[in-house]
Simulated assay, not measured.
Amino acid sequence: MRSVDLSDAKLVSLYRNGDEAAFEELVRRHKAKIFTTIYLIVKDHYVAEDLLQETFIKVVDTIQGGRYNEEGKFLPWVVRVAHNLAIDHFRKSKRYPTIVLEDGSNVFNTIDFAEDSFESLQIKKETHAHLRKLIQTLPEPQKEVLIMRHYAKMSFQEIADATGVSINTALGRMRYALINLRKKMRKSNAAYDPNFYPR
Rank of each mutant, 00 (worst) to 15 (best):
R2H: 13
R2D: 15
S7I: 06
D8H: 08
A9D: 15
A9H: 11
L11T: 08
V12F: 07
V12C: 13
V12D: 12
V12T: 08
L14M: 14
N17M: 09
G18P: 11
D19K: 09
E20P: 10
E20M: 10
A21T: 11
F23H: 15
E24H: 11
L26P: 12
L26S: 10
R29I: 03
R29N: 11
R29A: 08
K31N: 10
K33M: 10
I34Q: 04
T36Y: 12
T37D: 09
T37V: 03
Y39D: 03
K43E: 10
K43D: 11
D44P: 10
V47E: 09
A48H: 11
E49C: 07
D50L: 05
D50Q: 08
Q53W: 07
Q53R: 11
E54F: 04
I57R: 06
K58H: 12
K58G: 10
V59Q: 02
V59G: 05
D61N: 12
T62I: 05
Q64T: 05
G66D: 02
R67P: 00
E70L: 07
E70C: 10
K73F: 04
V78P: 00
R80V: 02
A82S: 07
H83I: 03
A86N: 05
I87V: 15
D88T: 14
H89V: 04
F90I: 03
R91I: 05
S93N: 11
S93K: 06
Y96N: 13
I99C: 04
I99F: 14
I99M: 08
E102G: 13
D103P: 09
S105G: 13
T110N: 15
I111L: 13
I111R: 13
F113G: 11
D116Y: 15
F118L: 08
F118I: 06
S120P: 14
Q122C: 10
Q122I: 04
K125A: 09
E126S: 14
T127Q: 14
H130M: 08
L134C: 07
I135Q: 02
I135A: 05
T137F: 05
P141N: 03
Q142T: 00
K143W: 01
L146G: 01
H150K: 06
Y151E: 00
A152M: 02
K153G: 01
S155Q: 02
F156M: 01
E158V: 00
I159W: 00
N168D: 12
L171N: 06
R173E: 06
R173I: 01
R175Q: 07
L178Y: 07
I179E: 03
I179H: 11
N180G: 06
K184Q: 07
M185H: 09
N189K: 14
A190Q: 15
A191H: 15
Y192V: 14
D193M: 13
F196K: 08
